[in-house]
Structures are given as C-alpha cells and as structure tokens.
Design a binder for these strands. Structure first.
Lengths: 357, 357
DNA sequence: GTCTCGACCCTAATCCTTTAGGTCGTTCGG
DNA sequence: CCGAACGACCTAAAGGATTAGGGTCGAGAC
C-alpha cells in the first residue's frame, strides 16, 4: 500500500536489522514467524520490512537451508496437448504446498537429441531441482546422475528403463487399451490396419504397438507400422510419402499413435479428400479437448492425464517430504521409493464417429 | 562416462580444491574458462571435477554474481492453446543464450484473483527473476513493484495500464482485425451478431469489442456482447443460459472472443444440433492447430503468436543485456525502455467455412 | 536469598561461489 | 643489472540468508 519510494539499493535482511536496531537473527526469526521473538519486536520488524519493501532472496535462503522449492517436469514437444492436462493435475496438487513446478521441454526445437537430454539434466542439477517428473524415458546414465544427487524421479506415461528397478512410475495400461482398440476395429470388419507411430524412445509407443500386434494376430488382421518423428510436420510428411509410394494402398483403418500423429493424419486425409470413416476409419491415442468437435468426431483412447499428473505429484511430494524428515534427523536424504509407487492406471476407448460407429 | 560412485556428500568447489591442492580461486577460474590459469592446472581441475561428479550450485553462483538466468512468462489459464505457440517463439529465441523461460500460470485453478496475481509477483521477486513477459495486464501496483526491483517487463497481447507509459509491449492490432471481421460478416448479409467475450481485464477483449462495435455501427448490424469467465466451462454455461432465457433468439453470427470461448460455443451448438454455418455463422479469435479440421473448418482471426513471442523475447533480451552492461560499468541497472519497444503487429482473417464461405 | 528456567536476543559461523587485492617468480627491454 | 610487466596463484571478503551456541534478565520456586 504505502510503497514509499524505495532506496537506491534493494533492501536486505541487514537493512531491516539496521533500521530496527535488532540483530539479523531476530529479524530472520520474526519474518519466518518463528519463536524467540517478542510480539513488539515482531511488529517492529514487520513494519520495517513493509516500509522498506523487503522481499527475501530465495537463492540465499535455499543455499543456506539446503532446500529447494521447485520440481521439474520434463516433456518433449509441448505442442502435444496431452501435457496441458498433465500439468494441470500437477499444479493442482502442488498448490498450497510451498513447491512449484516448472517444465523443461527437451525437444523444444522439434527434434530430440541425446545431447539436449544430457544438457537438460545437467541444468536441473545445477539449479538443484527438488525432484523430477519425466514424460520420457531418460537414459540410464542420466537417471544415475539424478540418483547421485538424491533427486527423486517419477516417470509418467513412459516407463523407466529396465535396470531402474525401484523408480516410481505412473503408467497407463496401453497394452490392454490397444488390444481393446484392435478388437473394436475388428468388430467393424476392418482387417487392414496402419499404425502411425512416433519413435520407440517413448515406451508407450512400444506397448501400444505390442497390443495392436497381439490384437491383429488374434483377429486375423494385417498390421502395418509406420514410424515418424514426434511432431506434426513429420507425421504429415511420413504418411504422405507412404501413400504416394507405389504398391501402398490406403488401409481400411489408421491408428494414430498420439496427438501430433492424428493431427498429421487428419490433415493428409483432408488434403486428399479421403472421407473418414467411409474410406478409412481413424482412431487415435490420447483424448483432447477438440476431439468431439472434429469432422467427424474422433474416436480416441482416453488416458486421464490430469489424474496421472495428480498421482505423480502426490508420489513425488511424499518422497520429498520424507527426504526433508530424513535430513532433519541427520540421515542421508536418499529418495525412499516404495513398491506401491509403481502404478498402472487403465485407459478406455471413447467411441465417437471416426471409427465408423 | 566414468561416473565413479560418488562420495557421500555432494561435491563442491572446495572438494575440487582439496583434491587438486589448488585454491578455490584457481578452480573457479579454471571451471569458468577464465584467465589466470595454466593449461596444466586447468586440465587437473577439469579432471578432478569430472571424477568427483561436480556440478556447480547455481543458487550460490547467482547469489555471488548478482545475476539471474531465468525469465518468467505470466499467463492465465494455460488451457488456452494460444500460449503454446507464444512459448515456442520465446523458447526459440532464448535457446543458445544462457537464459531460460519458466511459465507462471496465474489462473491455474481456473479463476483469476487479485490475490493470486499479487502472490505470483511476490514470488517472482523472491526468486529474483531476470525479467517478465506477461500476457495479462498487471495491476499498477505490481508493475511498480517489479520496477522497484529493476525487473523489466514486456507485455504481450495485453496492453500495459495507461500510466505505465514507457513499458514495452507487443500487441496485435485487434481493433482493425475486428473491423475486418465485422465487415466480412456484413458482406455475408448478417446483421445480428453476438460477441462471446472473456473479462475486460485482458485488454484484447476491449479492443476486440471496440472494433466490433465500430463495424456494427458502420454496417448497420446489431451487436450483443455476452461476457463469460475465461474458460471452457464458463463459456459453455454462459452461452447455454443465454440461449435458454426467454426473449433471446439465436443470433445470425457468433464471434467467439478466444480459444476457450469457441470451444464452449461449438460445444453448445453441437449439443443443440444447431448447424454451422447454416443456422448460425461462427468466427473466432486466435488461430490454432485444429481449426482447419473442425466441423466445419473454422474461420479465425490469426494473430501470429509465435512471432509475437520472438519479438517479445528479443526485446526483453536486449534490455537485460543492457542492464548487465550498466551494472558492469557501475551504473544503476534500471531497465532502459525505448519507444520502439512498443510494437503493434497486424492480424488478418483466415477465411474457412464456418462463416458461411 | 539463591537457584532455575524461560523468554528474548546476540555473535559468529555457515551454505557455495566469485573476485578484489596481493604475492612470488620469470622474463625481457634498455 | 634494474625495473617493469606478466603469468599463475593465493587469501580473504562478499553476497543474503539461517542457526548453533551463548548470553542477559526477570520471575517463580524453594
């Protein structure tokens, strides 16, 4: 309110100390609402802080306390709308705690490279992030690195590597969901499927493909797998050239591996005036806000990203709290992973019109 | 590579110093690739750092150097896809510099409140963010606060308040774009418009409304303005109850103020089986990836968010660099705003089918 | 009257880096 | 041979906070 014009320099604890004649100890305690301070002194300090426009320097606080307040969400290509819901869940869970989430986009420039992954992890350690939620499978080396620094990691969507046997995760049962999807396509009588997929570095891709293969075998369908980089342009290009190469015919059903993949697929089909679902049926992974409003409304496999975000954030929060406790008791703050931190949630098909229903 | 198993504690500069027998000064200089270090020592230090798995503590660095590396992008309701493109532009510009962008969502929980705005700004100052790019008009008080801390701010999309006369911005000429939109609707012969708008706290809302009013007057159309909170649910609810209240008839054209507004609008129309554009024409502000694939393809006002992000980031970068220079020369690091930092870019209508074309 | 205890406050160390200001040899021009 | 200049280091302070370890003082217990 009174925001008097501030002195030249940014006020620090010492300034309040001088203004009030109290020691920095007392000022600190007063500001952090601790004990050992009389009501009168506290009042005095608070008033001075307000008048000087004091705002604590978090870097200094965290350096001294050896605490950190922000967790990092590692994503690749945020243009995948899926992340919006995930973040919403995470944010919601964190709100009220004194932690906050920042996102580190590993493939901001479009393409993923190992170098960028390494640099990102290095950066996280430099900034001493409290914990990590990652949507992609980090290299074993990077996981080791984070572990060395006692930074807990929880995987969402993508599975941790084999040898990270205790690291928590929240996955959807993509295998079963893919089986179901295949069954649905088979029920329509389609026997000729094309799976437009992003790279296998996302473990979901592998599970989804595995489920589809199993379903194809079970229902006597033919499954073609087409791989693209994980963005709209690549998907568009990949499918286009596929359809243009002699010997390839339009499949009866296309399963788009994720959001950028459907986006590419539908665009290609629209450009070529191929009708959905009459000429080709389309189903896609990952529900998103606009799916019901597309032409035709899109049949999708729905994984509840927001709920996943909530679970992941809760798990991470618990681990971080335990670390704080451990540290207070003078123990090593190694992340305490529990078996039940490895969770799998199920996904189901939302049937709309693009599959032919 | 050799990632030997790390010692119990996290290695610091001092550890390297002890391991090499060199002083912390020399180690620091060696690591930061500075002068005053012999090639042999540098080699020694680098080797030790690698073996110990040393990673500098950024909090300590920034505290000492009095620098900060991250800028903050303030958004409200990230579910507005518009932000994705904006961020893309910002990230692209920042890549390669040693700065990075983090987003602070002011209305994560859906609703915007002044309290949250204040808390967010407070938080930014605590973490001593280097600079701010904000998509909404902050309160005069908060702008003053950031100014007091020499934190430069650039507004994108939303205009700064009147009295912040020198603060940079990158706006789109929403007034002209709205005029054009109105003209297009008039050309279709529609004389009965409904503008579904988000709150006026975003200055774009005001400009858009002003343009539409002017257009309506010019072309003899009737304009109704309907206000909703800035999210899908509110938009949906607001339009539904509007249509349900006796005396209100379906307008001939709906202009949706932004992404959440179209989302709500189209959903309502779909639920009621109102045909677009036969029964009602729809145009919307802000192009987004799915617009061409909707049913029918959506006519939108396109503002190039990515380009705006680039401009904003470049402006902010320049100001921050100048601050660094000033500080090096012992001057006060007050942000140096220039008149040409206040930019307006134009937007144009992308005509698709939802308007009746 | 002495002892104890709690409330309140202080000094100084500490967190991890960076850097101003010196030191100590060498080398080199004159 | 002298002084200056330079390279390679070092010591110690600083940056803004927290906190261990002590003090002081007055009130209550005995």
């Amino acid at each position: 309110m009174k925001a008097e014009s501030m002195p030249k320099k940014k006020p620090t604890l010492r300034d309040i100390s001088q203004a009030t004649g109290l020691s920095s100890y007392t000022v600190s305690r007063a500001l952090s609402n601790g004990s050992d301070v009389s009501a009168a002194s506290r009042e005095l300090v608070l008033k001075a802080a307000r008048e000087l426009g004091y705002v604590p320097n978090r870097a200094a606080q965290e350096l001294r306390r050896n605490t950190r307040s922000s967790i990092t969400v590692i994503t690749a290509s945020t243009s995948n709308y899926y992340y919006l819901d995930l973040m919403k869940g995470i944010q919601r869970t964190l709100r009220g705690s004194n932690r906050n989430a920042v996102v580190a986009d590993i493939a901001a420039e479009g393409v993923y490279t190992e170098a960028v992954e390494d640099a990102t992890v290095q950066d996280l350690i430099q900034s001493r992030t409290a914990g990590v939620i990652t949507t992609l499978t980090l290299s074993a080396q990077n996981i080791k690195l984070l572990e060395d620094w006692d930074i807990p990691v929880v995987f969402v969507d993508s599975a941790p590597p084999e040898d990270a046997a205790r690291v928590p995760f929240v996955l959807t049962d993509n295998f079963t969901a893919s089986m179901d999807t295949g069954a649905h396509l088979a029920a329509h009588g389609y026997t000729d499927w094309l799976f437009l997929a992003y790279p296998g570095r996302w473990s979901t891709r592998r599970e989804r493909e595995r489920g589809l293969r199993e379903a194809a075998a079970k229902h006597g369908a033919a499954l073609e797998v087409l791989e693209s980089e994980n963005d709209f342009d690549s998907a568009h290009r990949t499918l286009s050239t596929y359809l243009d190469t002699p010997g390839h015919v339009l499949p009866r059903a296309i399963i788009a591996g994720n959001n950028p993949m459907v986006h590419g697929t539908l665009t290609v089909l629209q450009e070529r005036r191929i009708r959905v679902p009459e000429d080709v049926a389309v189903v896609a992974f990952d529900e998103f806000a606009w799916a019901p409003l597309l032409n035709p409304p899109l049949t999708v496999v729905n994984e509840d990203s927001e709920a996943i975000g909530v679970i992941a954030a809760k798990t991470l929060t618990r681990i971080l709290d335990e670390q704080l406790d451990a540290e207070r008791n003078g123990q090593q703050p190694v992340p305490n992973y529990r078996p039940e931190d490895r969770r799998e949630v199920s996904a189901h098909l939302i049937v709309r019109r693009s599959c032919g229903c």
